[in-house]
Design a protein around this nucleic acid. Structure first.
Lengths: 169, 169
DNA sequence: ATATGAATGTAATATCATAACACGTCAAGA
DNA sequence: TCTTGACGTGTTATGATATTACATTCATAT
């Protein structure tokens, strides 16, 4: 799916693992996210925007309570629903992903593209990258079909070592 | 991997979704599990065996606290570690699987085969089936390799409708 | 028989998530 | 203009999942 605004995830699929201008990367995503929200009528309120900014600070997944702590320190509400609601909103809008294995959330690097990536999670540095998963999902679909099962949603998450962390300590 | 003892999962890959003699199915797994434990020197204690039996009662995933409640009712300890320890043991031995999406555990239908299945979870009846995932993992490996990531473990879980639940209500 | 390590029991606590309700804002329609 | 209703936020309370730490018991091999 080609698109106008810069999409860091498409420009560099291995973005999370590569050294890059992260300030630019995250502002690109934010700009796209705002545009998306406009277009879809979703309301990008201060809490929601701030949560997305916090998630964008690095390519890691954050727990809801970590986000909450940040919000509270900045004068937003300090009860769990404040964080969960904003996170749920972002996930629904395709601006963030939930990583089931980690019970945590990460900003999406392909905002608005209706994709369903596989997640690659480095067990040393905790970086989370989105890998293209079309062939993976195709294979999964075949396996499911053979058993008469119809897939509605699926999560594909891998734990391992990112390029940087593979080098000897 | 061919094997001597009956392995319900291999005999019928779509086992969980098909009507079958479940008493036989679960006793087959239990027999294989015992044999495995013998062979590997692992100790199949009463709590552990009982937890496996409970998981084998049907092809669903159970939360640790559900298991715990059953254990407590039968005179075992009634604190969470009792259930978690037994469940962790079974997972380590390859006799049960943890389903991340559900924060729950299901008995393995291929005990002792060192496999890494994809899980197909029916959102209506909650049945969990293990699907062969070799091609899926291969595709995932390719995607990861392209990004320089080395996979150590991965979880592939799909939510959808099983054959029975696809029929109109 | 006894030393050893493994397994179990228990208390306490940490971590993740949701339900329910009150309040404020803002825009659409009476 | 007033009102109503949807939505977002704040807060309390609670529920659900998981772990740490330590004491005790049990199995096994000397």
């Amino acid at each position: 799916m080609p698109h106008d605004h810069a999409c860091p995830g498409c420009a560099a699929p291995d973005l999370a693992f590569a050294t890059h201008d992260h300030a630019l990367c995250s502002s690109d995503v934010l700009i796209r996210a705002e545009a998306m929200a406009q277009a879809s009528g979703a309301r990008m309120t201060p809490v929601r925007r701030r949560v997305l900014e916090i998630l964008l600070e690095d390519h890691r997944a954050m727990g809801a309570y970590d986000v909450l702590q940040r919000l509270a320190a900045e004068g937003f509400g300090n009860q769990p629903p404040v964080a969960y609601r904003a996170l749920d909103f972002l996930v629904e809008q395709g601006l963030a992903h939930r990583i089931a294995r980690l019970n945590a959330f990460a900003a999406c690097m392909h905002p608005g593209e209706a994709h369903a990536p596989a997640f690659l999670i480095c067990r040393l540095c905790s970086t989370v990258a989105e890998a293209p998963a079309v062939p993976v999902r195709a294979a999964l679909g075949v396996a499911a079909e053979a058993m008469g099962f119809v897939i509605e949603r699926s999560s594909i998450e891998a734990l391992g070592l990112c390029p940087a962390c593979q080098r000897p300590a």
